[in-house]
Design a protein around this nucleic acid. Structure first.
Lengths: 114, 114
DNA sequence: TCTATAGTTCGCCATATGGTGAACCAACAA
DNA sequence: TTGTTGGTTCACCATATGGCGAACTATAGA
């Protein structure tokens, strides 16, 4: 499933920006139109629309136009997808039976825990 | 805490690349030197080192040089930090008392669930 | 109908990203 | 000491990203 990878790419990329994370946070509290969403931010509408576009392509939000206002809402399942990858990785880490070997390794090559 | 934001930026950005996610996955199974880590990938060493650098700056991995080999290991706490933000957001979503309003909203503006 | 509002599109720009090849340094190993 | 190996650095390139202002479209309201 190479496509899975691309989905994770755009998911994490979408989240790698404070503006976009703020939008997601805001939308988790309820749907909102573009103008209202953009108000807290300094940038112009065109720049903001690009952020929305990134979010939409990633699947994190869905939008729908009624009349002249476009309403945005979050797709919580996509958030769960990102979380899923992470918890899966953590499970990998926590479930390891040979973490002892890793510990030994870290003693063999002592690092400064600064 | 603006710094928190920057940390999340670089964390998610680090994860937004299949090569880097693969490296993290691999390192979760145990520490490894640069050369060995780079073998599964097509790109040259310089490009691969840039990826490692991104991972290190984000704090997802730490590296240490002994003799002429640099050993890399993962910092699972950083993974947890990313997961933390996501689960925090999900909690926001799940804990909402007014999700009904959101539902009503979605009925008022019916979207095509394509 | 006229006007203000919500979005959209376009061309432009600076910087960041992800890759290359070539030259280079430092440690083992023979 | 002389290779060879593991990393590193450098200059360079193409493309992506994130921002801008200006011009445009389309709907809502007076």
């Amino acid at each position: 499933m190479v496509n899975q990878q691309a989905a994770l790419d755009s998911l994490f990329h979408a989240l790698a920006d404070p503006t976009r994370r703020a939008v997601v946070s805001r939308l988790l509290k309820g749907a909102a139109p573009v103008k209202q969403l953009s108000e807290p931010f300094e940038m112009g509408l065109p720049a903001f629309l690009k952020h929305l576009s990134v979010l939409e392509v990633s699947g994190l939000i869905r939008t729908e136009k009624r009349g002249r206002v476009r309403t945005c809402r979050v797709d919580a399942e996509r958030l769960a997808a990102a979380e899923g990858w992470l918890s899966q990785q953590r499970a990998l880490w926590q479930g390891r039976t040979d973490r002892l070997a890793d510990f030994v390794e870290s003693q063999t090559h002592p690092e400064k825990t600064e």
